[in-house]
């Protein structure tokens, strides 16, 4: 009996440590390489940097216009994520607590939306946006981001809100609240755990999105970080140092973002265990 437990423990640790190493090694290597000049990366890919060569970062930042891209990425991720989560929550509430026949159909539509690749809508979308004068504007990027975020988030919201006891809604109705009030004062507060998860997921997805922003914009002033990073990482780029620096600039903020908010999720999970 004791043996199986230690064996189980050993295997558990092995599994955990393997995953940890698989994550840490490439990331460490990426960050260290960003501080090495191109020639050193090519000749000694594994060696640590001899000195902290920060020219990679300054060059990547200025040449790749990463400053403005960074601001745009932040705007897109924040604004689009806020509305995705808000609309997903309101839809999720409507679809799970109103019990209309059309709910099934709408849910099905959203489920189908999960299966659509960006490429299959990109051309009609571009035509539509140019006709509306939306291409090359921030709004023209944010709207599709919201739309593409919705299917998954509506799904998450619907399943979560379904689990909220109907009694809560009913007692509020008796107290004279209308449905919008119920949504804002009961559903949203109760659903904070899932909201933080939804927020983090959507935010990450938007931060890393490339194809839509590339196609729907052309001005430097409205493009975002992935476009900048791609211009370093694209096939013929000749400077690995710059490339790694650009990758670090694009990746590290998200890692920090996650490390900050991860406790929020954990707290959310703990608080979210509904009292029944």
């Amino acid at each position: 009996m004791k043996k199986t437990i230690t064996l189980g423990k050993g295997l558990s640790y092995l599994l955990m440590i393997t995953f940890t190493l698989l994550t840490i090694i490439p990331l460490t290597w990426m960050i260290l390489s960003a501080f090495k000049p191109h020639a050193l990366i090519v000749r000694h890919p594994l060696s640590p940097p001899m000195s902290w060569y920060i020219e990679n970062f300054t060059l990547a930042w200025t040449q790749g216009h990463l400053g403005i891209y960074f601001i745009n990425s932040t705007i897109y991720s924040l604004v689009a994520t806020f509305f995705t989560v808000l609309f997903a929550m309101s839809s999720g509430y409507a679809l799970s607590k109103f019990h209309y026949k059309s709910s099934r159909f709408v849910s099905l539509l959203y489920t189908l939306g999960l299966l659509i690749t960006v490429h299959s809508v990109i051309v009609p979308l571009f035509i539509m946006e140019t006709k509306l004068g939306l291409s090359n504007t921030r709004l023209g990027v944010i709207l599709p981001y919201i739309a593409f975020g919705l299917p998954f988030q509506v799904f998450l919201a619907t399943t979560y809100i379904k689990g909220i006891p109907d009694a809560m809604q009913e007692s509020a109705i008796i107290d004279g609240a209308d449905f919008i009030q119920i949504f804002l004062r009961i559903i949203i507060p109760v659903a904070t755990p899932i909201i933080s998860t939804m927020f983090i997921y959507t935010f990450l997805g938007n931060w890393n999105e490339f194809i839509l922003v590339l196609t729907l914009t052309s001005d430097l002033t409205v493009r975002s970080l992935p476009v900048g990073i791609n211009s370093f990482a694209g096939g013929m780029s000749r400077d690995y140092g710059l490339q790694f620096a650009a990758l670090v600039i694009g990746t590290v903020p998200m890692i920090i973002f996650y490390l900050i908010f991860k406790d929020k999720i954990a707290q959310g999970f703990a608080a979210g265990a509904l009292k029944e």
């Binding site: 990109i122 051309v123 571009f126 035509i127 590339l214 196609t215 791609n230 694209g234 096939g235």
Partner: peptide
Amino acid sequence: GYGEAFHDKLQTMAMSGQ
């Protein structure tokens, strides 16, 4: 534009008359 992205965008612009 650069690499494949150049051609993708060019094609999209051509098809939409832009």
